[in-house]
């Protein structure tokens, strides 16, 4: 069953000299429930903008995004925020953990805007990612690999239907990257969440059965290439 359907999605920015640049121009994209897709793409190909559009952080210039039966692109901002909190877990390249919060609090914070705080589930998630003994540690007291695992637990905290992962292994060394990716793939499966992961790392992409090339999806990117 389709979880995410995108039609004619466009997003452009006005440059410093007043000229408009289209960074996302995706005609069609779908993602089924519990499906795991990797999007490949080089730097500047609009990967993060594409994910932010899906997450409702950015509003498209035109086109539609249907997520879990709701039209994200038609919703007003507060409703988009609610839909994001309930439906989407987001894993960032730079982890984006709040430094003043412990591991457990970072996960609970993710819950507080979505399904509601469930401390037992938060602890279970942190144990699942191997941080059962680090619940009260602050991010600065953890290694980068451990921080990424907290970010994975936080992304799953609201039992999301979709996990967006933006270069999640980009800041990790080879071994940590491999372990982290395995964790993301397995944890999403265990929690019944679909996964849309963007990366330009061939090894990461090789772990997915379905890989889409964002350059082919994204007409804007093709235009930019063509102009070059």
């Amino acid at each position: 069953m389709t979880l995410l359907q995108i039609q004619n999605l466009k997003k452009s920015y006005v440059g410093p000299e007043g000229d408009r640049h289209t960074v996302v121009d995706v005609k069609h994209f779908t993602l089924a429930e519990q499906e795991q897709i990797a999007l490949s793409g080089e730097s500047g190909s609009g990967k993060t903008t594409f994910l932010n559009l899906i997450a409702g952080i950015l509003k498209p210039d035109s086109g539609s995004i249907h997520l879990a039966g709701e039209s994200m692109s038609d919703l007003k901002e507060p409703a988009r925020d609610r839909l994001r909190a309930r439906t989407i877990g987001y894993i960032f390249q730079t982890f984006n953990l709040l430094q003043g919060y412990t591991c457990l609090e970072n996960v609970l914070l993710g819950m507080s805007f979505g399904a509601g705080v469930d401390a037992a589930f938060a602890e279970k998630l942190l144990k699942r990612v191997g941080l059962g003994s680090r619940l009260k540690h602050y991010p600065r007291q953890l290694s980068t690999g451990q921080q990424q695992r907290v970010a994975v637990a936080r992304a799953l905290a609201n039992r999301p239907k979709l996990v967006l992962a933006d270069e999640p292994t980009g800041n990790l060394d080879h071994q940590n990257a491999r372990q982290s990716l395995t964790l993301i793939l397995e944890a999403c499966k265990e929690n019944g969440a679909a996964l849309l992961l963007v990366s330009h790392d061939r090894e990461v992409l090789s772990r997915f059965q379905k890989v889409e090339d964002l350059r082919k999806l994204n007409h804007a990117s093709s235009h930019m290439e063509a102009r070059k």
Partner: peptide, 15 residues
């Protein structure tokens, strides 16, 4: 940056 993270987690502007 913290505000952006909170917003990405679903916090509304008014929150």
């Amino acid at each position: 940056r913290e505000i952006a993270i909170l917003r990405a987690l679903g916090a509304r502007r008014m929150t």
